[in-house]
Write a protein that binds this DNA or RNA. Structure first.
Lengths: 221, 221
DNA sequence: TGTGAGCCGTACCGTACGTTACGGTTCGCC
DNA sequence: GGCGAACCGTAACGTACGGTACGGCTCACA
């Protein structure tokens, strides 16, 4: 919710090592990260952990922020946009996102954040939210707007279009992973899925090729 | 995974009361359900809890199974299927599903199962998986097959078609709810979203109305 | 060389919670 | 009425873990 949820923090080299150890432990052990286990793993004292991060929640928050900082995707340069470039840009977004959500780190952190979201502390979930779905929205939206401006896309609500794109990309993959279904997306499967999602999105929101190919205009939804 | 994950269990009246109390506690308190709190809330002794459910995991499992048993949707009767009936059947599925995943009970139990999924005990997540996405797949598939048999739908892979339907319906709603974003879907919003999802699905997988209107067949994706 | 800051390792404390044990009560059944 | 099974309420135990305290080490710096 609050802007601070996405705020970047500076971590020292040693702190980053500790946070990486925390990530490794969370990935291995599920959400059962204990301060003692982290201190052992990272070869640091618990006193240091509490000095740096305040308490356990602070540590978890810092860990999620650290991982989020690592995952920031590179914005793709906006050259001239034709249907070809738009499709492959969407495809790249889709593939990036599928890679992220199917990584063991993302699964573990999302589990942590989801399990944490019911509780009293209002964040963790919100941090993942801002660096997950919301971040993807922010990154994709300029592309959608550019596509519309170029006459390649037709939609009334960019938000709704994004949500549909998200659904076409993610489908039930993320919830199945979070619920523990053992599935590994190979690079090939990701590429295929990304292409399919991109094509389906263009089929729904693309301006009719009709204008180039003389086919009838499908109605938009 | 195992078939037992979806197996039904018989619960006595009193046991159902206790499990409902457990559900209420989980919804209120997040995943922090303690045996003592449940015993207090349900006015039963902890000894009874352990006698009935074995241990805490057994209790959680029973709770999830009990909720799953309550949520079984009514299968819709298969009358003659035209494009109209298919669309509204899909719409009903979509609305049903949106209602389920946006209910506070479902959110709380999914949080529980997701948080549990990283751990050692291999179920809970698997139970929700079978009564969640997999159940929806099982329920929707006959409709898809009937739609294809009736020449109303075109797809190569019923599974892929279902996954896309799921994505169009759920989009990012479930993950945002699980991560704690405060959003409430009104009945109107659900109806609108369900209609949109159904129409988008038909736009992607519907057999071309062309055949009735003499237009060319767009390529499928 | 002295000194103080920062950190490691470890021991320790308090508490929450899963689990067990037990006395007292209700109730069906003979 | 007598009996046993089931169950309630509560007390007690053991342990795991968050959080704190403290002694010792290293090292920059005067």
């Amino acid at each position: 919710m609050s802007v601070t949820a996405t705020e970047d923090r500076e971590f020292s080299e040693r702190q980053r090592e500790v946070l990486d150890a925390a990530l490794a432990l969370i990935v291995e052990n599920g959400s059962a990260l204990t301060m003692s286990a982290l201190a052992r793993r990272a070869s640091c004292s618990k006193e240091t952990l509490y000095k740096w991060f305040g308490d356990r929640d602070g540590l978890l928050t810092a860990t999620v922020q650290w991982q989020a900082a690592k995952v920031r995707g590179v914005p793709l340069d906006r050259e001239r946009l034709d249907r070809e470039a738009l499709g492959s840009a969407l495809e790249r977004f889709a593939a990036d996102w599928l890679r992220v959500i199917s990584s063991s780190t993302s699964v573990a952190l999302n589990r942590l954040a989801v399990g944490h979201a019911g509780g009293d502390t209002p964040d963790l979930g919100s941090i993942v939210l801002h660096n997950g779905p919301f971040a993807m929205n922010r990154r994709v939206r300029p592309l959608l707007m550019a596509g519309e401006a170029a006459g390649l896309l037709r939609f009334e609500d960019a938000d709704a279009a994004f949500h549909t794109f998200f659904g076409l990309v993610v489908r039930d993959v993320q919830i199945r992973l979070l619920l523990g279904e053992p599935m590994s997306l190979s690079a090939d499967e990701i590429a295929i899925d990304a292409r399919r999602a991109s094509q389906q999105f263009l089929a729904l929101f693309g301006a009719p090729e009709a204008e180039m190919a003389g086919q009838p205009t499908p109605r938009r939804i």
